[in-house]
């Protein structure tokens, strides 16, 4: 049921890039798990609404008041690559493609 195409698709959605051996193992594990959760097919559910959250069903609003933020320096310090208070990332727009 879980073929290579599905595993590759789900890996892409997950932003994971595993090697062949890892993928094979995962394929087997996922098949086992999906077989196991297949037991839910026994139960009739069409009359019942989905329940994503138990108690709270409404949004929580607050006044739009300025508050002190977390210290920027301490927050940015967790980034492996940074310049001053900025996060550094690889170039996202290829150079030289413009016509």
């Amino acid at each position: 049921m879980i073929d290579d195409k599905t595993i590759n698709h789900i890996s892409r959605l997950s932003r994971l890039n595993m090697n062949r051996a890892e993928k094979e193992k995962l394929k087997k594990d996922m098949e086992d798990i999906i077989n196991y959760i297949g037991i839910l097919n026994e139960i009739e559910v069409t009359e019942t609404e989905p329940l994503p959250y138990i108690f709270s069903t409404s949004n929580v609003f607050r006044e739009d008041v300025k508050k002190e933020s977390q210290p920027v320096k301490a927050v940015v310090a967790n980034a492996e690559e940074r310049t001053e208070n900025y996060f550094k990332v690889p170039r996202t727009i290829e150079a030289g493609n413009g016509k």
């Binding site: 789900i10 959605l13 997950s14 996922m30 798990i33 839910l40 139960i43 559910v45």
Partner: peptide, 30 residues
């Protein structure tokens, strides 16, 4: 962790959402 991320994205993905995720939410209600 990778196994659960993969499983989660599988049950949420187009074509499987109703069969797994939505169904599980209904079972939760039952």
């Amino acid at each position: 962790v990778k196994r659960r991320i993969m499983l989660g994205n599988f049950v949420l993905s187009s074509g499987y959402y109703d069969a797994y995720y939505n169904k599980a939410l209904r079972v939760r209600n039952i």
